[in-house]
Amino acid sequence: AADVGSRLANNSSYGELPVGAVTALIGGPCLAYLSYRAAQKHREVPKPSASSLDTTTRFLSYRALLGIFGALLVAVTILGMIFGDVKIPLQDVLAAVQGQGPDLARSIVLDQRLPRMLVAACAGAALAVSGLLLQGVVRNPMADPSIVGVSAGAGVGALLLLLVWPELPIALLPFASFVGAIAAALIVYLIARKTGLQPAVLALVGIAVSACGSAVIQLIVVQTKMNVAVALAWISGSTYARGWEELAQLVVWPVLLLPLAWLIGRRVDILAFGQEGAVGLGVNVEQTRLRAAAIGVALAAAAVSIVGTIGFVGLIAPHAARLLIGHNHRRLMPLAALLGAVLLVLADIVGRNLLPPKEIPSGLIVSLLGAPYFLWLMRSSRR
């Protein structure tokens, strides 16, 4: 059916549509529908898991952990400015940051590597806090901006602005991503809500929406004759050639939204006790879910609009933070943000230096770590 559809849509200018993209457009809605039907037959109300409520034995204080990971972020950022096509000595890097040192080192550090590292750190922090909020809202440890379809939706919105309406100002890019992310999140939520937001259903519907979003992205790339290398890097998620302009577009969103996420953290904690328990404690459940989800979606959309569809940061960082300090969302957010920033900066460094002079997109490096972790998490959740 997909092959016939791709040939029927044959255009003399662009040729046949990719059959894989057409398959996803057909199969994605089918998967979402089948997941919904199966869940209706075996409806269960999700209960808070022990891992989400128990506190973890800690060997280090909270402030010590923040200090350690903050110092680690500074260290990996400096490493990112040292290593690359041209290795720059540490003393030249430190001098360049102060506006001194050799002209070549100062140009490479200040114009290329430093803004790129800062973009990776901001995007990683935004994706990590987004994943943390989405997991708290749906009470599902497998929730993540990429898994529940938010990243793909944001990618569709960003590409539509860049390629279909290029005459619009680039400052609208985060807003276009936000619209796409909201649309994807609403589809997933409306379908999964009728089944009690069961974890398996949410993951399957999210995968279906992500597949449809990725298919739309492929069709946009084909129809607009976008450069294949650039398209693949963007779809995979990359910090390549990101500079001060991209940093200025991205940083404003975490600066505005992270404090709001922290303020709503206590109410998100109470959601873990279930609908009746949260209402009994005086929390407006629907309003809290809506606000927390909106903040999480906006953070993911802002990151995707700049670095592309990087997945699994929002899955790994929150879980690592919970293993260290437990469930308190107000304490989790700064630590998860630091972990996400460190993870994406490290992925950028590895991608630049693994097969020089070629660069591997940061999103692929993160996926190599995140995909096995996601499979392990699904197995543990089922058990």
Results as ranks from 00 to 15, higher is better:
residue 111 D to C: 09
residue 329 H to Y: 15
residue 240 Y to G: 13
residue 243 G to W: 04
residue 79 L to K: 03
residue 83 F to H: 07
residue 19 V to C: 05
residue 75 A to H: 03
residue 186 L to I: 04
residue 316 I to P: 08
residue 236 S to C: 09
residue 40 Q to M: 15
residue 234 W to G: 10
residue 90 L to C: 12
residue 68 I to V: 15
residue 81 M to S: 06
residue 320 A to I: 06
residue 42 H to T: 13
residue 344 L to V: 01
residue 245 E to A: 15
residue 73 L to P: 09
residue 278 A to W: 05
residue 220 I to M: 12
residue 297 V to K: 09
residue 274 G to A: 13
residue 258 L to G: 06
residue 131 G to F: 06
residue 12 S to T: 06
residue 48 P to D: 12
residue 357 P to N: 07
residue 338 L to M: 12
residue 9 A to L: 15
residue 352 R to N: 09
residue 133 L to P: 07
residue 218 Q to G: 15
residue 335 L to P: 03
residue 56 T to R: 14
residue 185 A to R: 01
residue 373 Y to T: 01
residue 344 L to W: 01
residue 296 G to K: 00
residue 233 A to G: 14
residue 210 S to A: 11
residue 224 T to Q: 15
residue 184 A to K: 00
residue 186 L to M: 10
residue 287 Q to P: 01
residue 258 L to N: 03
residue 145 P to E: 09
residue 227 N to D: 15
residue 227 N to K: 01
residue 120 A to D: 02
residue 246 E to Y: 07
residue 44 E to C: 13
residue 111 D to F: 07
residue 108 I to Y: 07
residue 372 P to C: 07
residue 129 V to Q: 10
residue 337 A to V: 03
residue 52 S to Q: 14
residue 274 G to W: 04
residue 244 W to Y: 11
residue 276 E to C: 09
residue 377 L to N: 02
residue 35 S to Y: 03
residue 114 L to S: 04
residue 332 L to V: 03
residue 59 F to M: 13
residue 117 M to R: 01
residue 274 G to K: 07
residue 10 N to E: 13
residue 207 I to Q: 07
residue 200 A to V: 12
residue 127 L to Y: 03
residue 191 I to Y: 06
residue 89 P to I: 10
residue 21 A to C: 05
residue 30 C to P: 02
residue 56 T to H: 11
residue 382 R to L: 14
residue 21 A to H: 05
